[in-house]
């Protein structure tokens, strides 16, 4: 059993404390560094919460899209996808091309949810 609170939870409260109690006391020349630390903690917390799920989803979609292949983990599936992109097997205008496009859009979206969700808000995406 892992002790509660778990990693994401700890990061969240640590970050809140940093922003609330420490940031106001930080001299101007270190403020940017303190904000970077808070940002890195926020990314780490979102990664702990969403990262694995995103990778699992990507693996599932990719396994279906690529059909039978020797690749099994996400890394080898991505390498296989890249191999096919480079050989030009996906022709614009075909359903395969559109399906890969949708998959990649979903991948990018899930990664931005971890790295910078505010970016999505500004675009009116979630």
């Amino acid at each position: 059993m892992r002790e509660r609170p778990h990693g994401a939870d700890l990061l969240a409260i640590a970050r809140e404390t940093l922003r609330r109690d420490v940031l106001p006391l930080v001299p101007d020349e270190s403020r940017y560094t303190a904000l970077m630390i808070a940002n890195a903690m926020a990314i780490a917390a979102r990664d702990a919460e969403l990262g694995e799920r995103a990778a699992r989803d990507a693996l599932q979609r990719l396994a279906t899209l690529l059909g039978p292949t020797r690749a099994e983990d996400l890394r080898s599936l991505n390498k296989e996808l890249i191999r096919r992109i480079r050989t030009g097997v996906f022709r614009p205008g075909t359903p395969e091309h559109a399906a890969i496009g949708r998959h990649l859009w979903e991948c990018a979206l899930q990664q931005v949810r971890v790295s910078n969700p505010k970016y999505l808000e500004r675009l009116g995406l979630k």
Binding site: T33, M36, I37, N39, A40, I43, W105, A108, L109, Q111, V112, V114, S115, N116, Y119
Partner: peptide, 15 residues
């Protein structure tokens, strides 16, 4: 840290 965070702008550029 700054270099580490720079890697995290890649997803929004990809999007």
């Amino acid at each position: 840290l700054e270099l580490a965070l720079t890697a995290h702008v890649v997803p929004e550029l990809e999007l």
